[in-house]
Amino acid sequence: MSAVPAVQVRDLHVRAGGLTAVRGVSFTIPAGGRMGLVGESGSGKTLTALSLMGLLPVGLRAQGEILHDGVDVTKLSDAQLSRRRGRTLSMVFQDPLSALNPVRRVGHQIASVIRRHKGVGSNEAGQQALSLVQQMRLPRPERIMHAYPHELSGGQRQRVMIAMALACYPQLIIADEPTTALDVTVQKQVLRLLNEAVSERGCGLLMITHDLPIVAAMCETVAVMYAGRIVEMGPVSEVFTAPRHPYTRGLLDSQPTMDNIAIDGSSRLPSIPGMVPPLDGLPAGCAFHPRCPRADDRCRREAPMLDGGGRRAACWHPLEGTLTGTNAA
């Protein structure tokens, strides 16, 4: 793998009309690197991902710099982007049932991605699709190739999605909550498969999730988003054991574990008080201050920036020391 990063994002803003949903996000995923992007719903994770793909919904605009494959994708025309989507840059979506074309056979859908980007004939593309389906460890691959999406199970469909995303050995795969729509029993299998497939091909991974253990298991670095900003970023092992931002701490505390889910209901799962602020009602200063136990006057006035170093946090009063208790991931 070359030393060129899989993606380098600088000061990304996503605006819709007068509102700004993503407010100055920067991160780098090295070639073959894996980063987790975590945060609550509405924090801007998915919009960040769609900006990388150049697939923001109509009415939303991405500004900033997204360097990928030697170019700034925000400057590319749709035709230029189309040649990269599915080839150097691909995405696995949350709900594989709605993400696959209901009226086309699965094999055709995988093969069409290969045909589009590799310029091979339909026979060759079909062979490559079949071999991908086999690599995804799907039972009876020939039957799967001829099946329609509704004839497959949720886990099988997501494997098909992963096969489509991997078909052209991309430099970066974005997985947006890839297991949220799946049964708990198959989540692990699908993640293991994704993990192996990404490792074998040496592609970069951006894993978007609110499930912190997934990030702990699969990623090297993690970025925590809140209200359109990255509030903490660093190596997974350090961020999850010694969070510096109170929000990260809150997220870690609200993960269910065997300890905080008592069968008799006597102990309760800790949660972060309050709600994610709406885009048109962001508080002044640090966006998290109304929910933060450590907030003071400065937090209400001035917005903190990410500080330097390997473990960066955007907080005036970062936490010190490691987590105690069993919640450390």
Binding site: S82, R85, S90, A99
Partner: peptide, 15 residues
């Protein structure tokens, strides 16, 4: 507006 059209776009199909 269906997801599968977005998938088609995400795998490199033009609009």
């Amino acid at each position: 507006n269906q997801d599968y059209v977005r998938t088609a776009r995400a795998t490199g199909m033009s609009q």
